[in-house]
Design a protein around this nucleic acid. Sequence first.
DNA 1: CTCAGTGCAAAGGATTTGCATGCCG
DNA 2: CGGCATGCAAATCCTTTGCACTGAG
Lengths: 148, 148
Amino acid sequence: MSSVSLSAVHEAAKRRLLDAGQMYTSGRRELVELLFSLGRPVTAHEVLEARPKLTQSSVYRNLAVLEEMRVVQRVAGGDDRTRVELAEDIIGHHHHLVCVVCGMVEDLVISAKAERAIDTVFDQAVEGTGFIATGHRLDILGTCKRCA
Amino acid sequence: MSSVSLSAVHEAAKRRLLDAGQMYTSGRRELVELLFSLGRPVTAHEVLEARPKLTQSSVYRNLAVLEEMRVVQRVAGGDDRTRVELAEDIIGHHHHLVCVVCGMVEDLVISAKAERAIDTVFDQAVEGTGFIATGHRLDILGTCKRCA
DNA sequence: CTCAGTGCAAAGGATTTGCATGCCG
DNA sequence: CGGCATGCAAATCCTTTGCACTGAG
């Protein structure tokens, strides 16, 4: 699953940006690298703490660009802050363990079989609602080790 | 499913507040009534639009109290605003259709069988992670009728 | 050279808080 | 009466934006 390499991620990110006429600057590269190394959804605040050199507005702006280019995606956490992580089609489809105490979010990969079961359930559920489903969000809520 | 009556909801809400030494005031009652009548997660902003008489700070404060008393629960939408709806143990377990265009969230009830399938999948997934699961959040993302 | 990207500071929007007053128990 | 709840306004927090400057192609 997370057998994806950093260089592969950079390649994917770079291609998506260049194809859209955007630059793959050092600031953006650094964001991708950080997201890759942390391997979980992070808030803008966490990014700024981890990379003090980066500027607040640039982080927000670059995350927005990366999101538009489908390099990263937003994730709802246990609190109100917006979190982002590398897009699923880059690091692979997965779900989240959300700590309702501290808001932390961790990735969770489930078996292909389980995934298929869920897909089936959802497909049936949406039928006839007039809603056009494009994806899903499955989070398991609870308490993480640290907060237990 | 939504066979729950308004009075039953008021009763449940009132009991939870009184048991905790809180008052079930008209402002709180009105919030519960509005949430019940709308039947979907709403933002504080929507509440204020629907009930202009209510004060902004009181709405936020009362929603916080109701959340603490487990009368309402927060729901992540397609945008950044916090939404709340009546707690699942009052109106019943369900999931959400989230519009990624306008952020709107609608309730979705799936079959017991489907629900069981999902529970099984999740139980297995969390095993051995050290995470203490207390619930889950399943949202189907897509485009609603209005935004299609 | 030219335009997108960056930094800094100020603006914006949602939510929270302080404080004086009102109302329920 | 006494304390929680309410209103209003000011304060905060997160995020976005304006503008001048820098850097890459």
